[in-house]
Design a protein around this nucleic acid. Structure first.
Lengths: 340, 340
DNA sequence: GTGAAAGCGCTAACAG
DNA sequence: CTGTTAGCGCTTTCAC
């Protein structure tokens, strides 16, 4: 294993050096069982371990205990700025418990199943998933496999898996209310893919918020993905098929920036001619021109909470809340018309 | 292990079902040894494995073989937009080989050593490190431990570890040459931390490029980190202590954006009053105001190549090139004065 | 409080 | 081509 260096010191070597039995060493080195050992022996073992440079072999203990101190994280696209903070939250929670995190980038959803199979082979203790489409058979598979898992940034509508999400409906309500308050009436929506829960949740949020104000959705176009290109395409369609709305609520910041692109080409000025809102408050959207009014999500906390829930499950503390909903927040900048 | 579900099917169960010996199953399921097995038996084993839902236990094979099919990646800050594409490249390379990637966010450099120790305990087959300061004792430690490792985005000047980097000197030369070509003479530099290799490399690059043109660095301020805040602070110092330069070459985009912030506060207009260049071409810097002229790095390829080098090492193919240098590219946008 | 012994699931000589 | 055997390093009853 170690290409060079000494041939790896084992618990047996430590036992010998300390003049005790291996099982004693095992106990001495296990925080939970340390109490069973006399102070004197404990010291001797620790000293021997340090002196020999002992490093426990997790593979061996994993084989014996069935627990690997390892969790897997499935992300659709590490490169999408919403995920790094989520991952950071997960990693921080894991690190605090001495767990490591496998990260898998699930570029294509058909790869998800084989990746989960490999995670199962690795005997991860649990999974945090930021993927899952609506009614995903993968969720079934995981539930059946008995692997602990929690969804993040995506809820499981069937409730088979716990989840940590941001309140999409509230987010859109915040955006719509802001637009209405600044005098807009003809409000359109650039919707996310209706195959993913957030896509439908946000769309419903927009519609409901409008209804609450006695308004109807002026127009809508669905994006193929949460990307700038998809935003451009959808914005073109929206403008081609409809009278120009006074404002458009976008399903996310990237899509909003795609809308910026199209508007720029067409010489339609934001916010003079049209107001735009985003969702996510990605880094730098405060620096674009004009700075984007958007919805800020507690991304890092999303990840942190998801991991904490997962660890609770792993440790057998069954949860009360099976899905926790975090509060988003409106950030008003310059892409929406100021209040009159 | 599996909280519910059947009590895990092992190679033994498969052997029994297929009417062969366990070692035969082991061979049949190992791509490298499959050739040793008759077609008939092979089929029987595969069928039995599938029928029973057999899933190899990596912990067991890791214990036996000493190889975990696992590598570790150490990142200083997942949230910094340069790292996700690097990570993606690493992950893609690993996934192609059936390896998983542990990601550790090394927020504080003092945590690096313990994290590496834990990685060692996990028996990762290798490490990709995007951390390492200059003359980092950690590099020594790793070299001594015999663990395969390669640096990415940071070179090891002592050459103990292979590395994949972008050409910092060339990057700065590209920026300086562009500025000089558009008529600038008084050129300043917002330098990166001189404790990290990229910080000194880029600074030297700026100075050398200027010298090549018969010019000297007009002024310089060192940033405490590669962040927007540090950029703001450094830009303030630069402006306070010196006559205003005509252009400033920034060590990275975030720092350049920090410079934008203070210039904005002071009513100094970019590029009319001063030209600014960045480095990295992070997402969205084409959308800021004004769009940032910067240096684009092949981040994903950096990660990919680093992982490929690591796997070559792991497989014992000793490398010829111990440090590979990738070419950056100038992206001219609107933050620099156009050619006359 | 400590030792003895068994075995987690798999792979790799070694035979045949 | 397939079976036999041994054991990777650790944890965990079970004794004492």
């Amino acid at each position: 294993m170690n290409p060079n260096s000494s041939p790896a010191v084992t618990i047996r070597d430590v036992a010998q050096a300390a003049g005790v039995h291996v099982s004693t060493v095992s106990r001495a080195l296990n925080p939970d069982k340390r109490g069973l050992i006399s102070a004197e022996v404990l010291r001797a073992v620790e000293e021997a371990a340090r002196r020999l440079g002992y490093r426990p072999n997790r593979a061996a203990s994993a084989l014996r205990t069935g627990r690997t101190q390892t969790i897997g994280v499935l992300l659709p696209d590490i490169t999408n700025p919403v995920f790094p903070p989520i991952l950071q939250g997960i990693e921080a929670s894991a690190a605090a418990r001495g767990f490591f995190v496998f990260v898998a980038n699930v570029a294509d959803h058909v790869l998800a199943r084989p990746i989960v199979e490999r995670m199962l082979a690795q005997r991860v203790d649990g999974l945090v998933m930021a993927i899952a489409t609506r009614d995903d058979p993968l969720v079934d598979f995981i539930a059946r496999s008995g692997l602990h898992a929690v969804l993040v940034n995506r809820a499981d509508e069937s409730g088979r898996l716990p989840a940590v999400v941001s309140d999409d409906r509230l987010a859109m309500k915040l955006a719509v209310d802001h637009l209405v308050a600044t005098g807009h009436r003809r409000i359109g929506h650039l919707a996310g893919p209706q195959s993913v829960p957030t896509g439908v949740g946000r769309r419903q949020g927009v519609e409901q918020a409008l209804r609450d104000r006695g308004l109807a959705l002026a127009c809508v176009a669905e994006c193929e993905s949460y990307s700038r290109e998809a935003g451009r395409a959808a914005m073109r369609r929206l403008l081609a098929d409809n009278a120009r709305p006074e404002a458009v609520v976008c399903c996310n910041d990237l899509v909003a920036l795609g809308a910026y692109d199209v508007l720029g080409e067409l010489g339609i000025e934001v916010p003079r001619d049209i107001s735009i809102t985003g969702h996510n408050d990605m880094p730098l959207v405060d620096m674009v021109n004009p700075p984007l009014t958007t919805i800020r999500l507690p991304h890092r906390e999303l990840g942190w909470r998801a991991a904490e829930m997962l660890f609770d499950e792993i440790e057998g503390k069954s949860l009360s809340a099976s899905t926790v909903v975090l509060r988003p927040e409106l950030v008003v900048r310059k892409s929406t018309r100021p209040a009159a």
